[in-house]
Amino acid sequence: MSGQAPSHAPSAATIETLARDALARIPEPFQTHLADVVLIVEEFADDETLDAMGIEDPFDLTGLYHGRPVGEKSAFDSGGLPDRIHLYRRPILDEWCDTGVPLQVLVAHIVVHEVGHHFGLSDDDMHALEDAAG
């Protein structure tokens, strides 16, 4: 059976497992701040999210960070929702099929990008973090 293509699309649970593995590989000092971030895998972003971001095609959004970047948090922040990383399964699978990038690599890239937003990192910083987490 080895070498055969999968007979079904990876589930939300599979993508969540890949994302949690990617989160676990992110090095310190970032790791300490990720303990409270909630990871959510959904089929697509909801209409409200897409509208807020000015995105018409739901396949154009693979992931999204909701919350305040670490540098903008305050000791007075309490009672609010926890920071969340949303991953959108169908757009991820679409990109996986279109690019041929291994699913584990693609999910890790998206997770690192969203974590980068959590920390307010630049694109260059995110690429360095991705290399470190690889």
Rank of each mutant, 00 (worst) to 15 (best):
V105I: 13
F59H: 11
G100M: 03
P91H: 06
G54H: 02
A128G: 06
A108Y: 00
V111N: 05
D131R: 13
A132F: 04
P69V: 03
F76I: 11
A132G: 09
Q104C: 08
P102F: 05
A75I: 12
A133M: 03
H117L: 06
L61M: 11
D98L: 13
H66N: 11
R25V: 04
L50C: 02
E130N: 12
V107H: 00
L81C: 10
D60R: 00
E28V: 06
K73P: 02
D98C: 10
Y88M: 06
S78R: 15
F76K: 13
D60L: 10
I55C: 04
G120A: 10
W96N: 02
D123G: 07
L103K: 04
H86I: 01
V38W: 04
S122C: 10
H33W: 09
I92S: 02
L64S: 04
M53H: 12
H86D: 08
T62I: 10
L34T: 00
E28Y: 02
H113N: 07
H113T: 10
E95N: 11
E72S: 14
G67Q: 03
L39Y: 02
E130T: 03
A132T: 07
F119G: 10
R68P: 01
A108I: 00
A35Q: 12
D131N: 13
L39W: 05
A45L: 01
F44P: 02
L34P: 02
I26S: 01
V101G: 04
G80K: 12
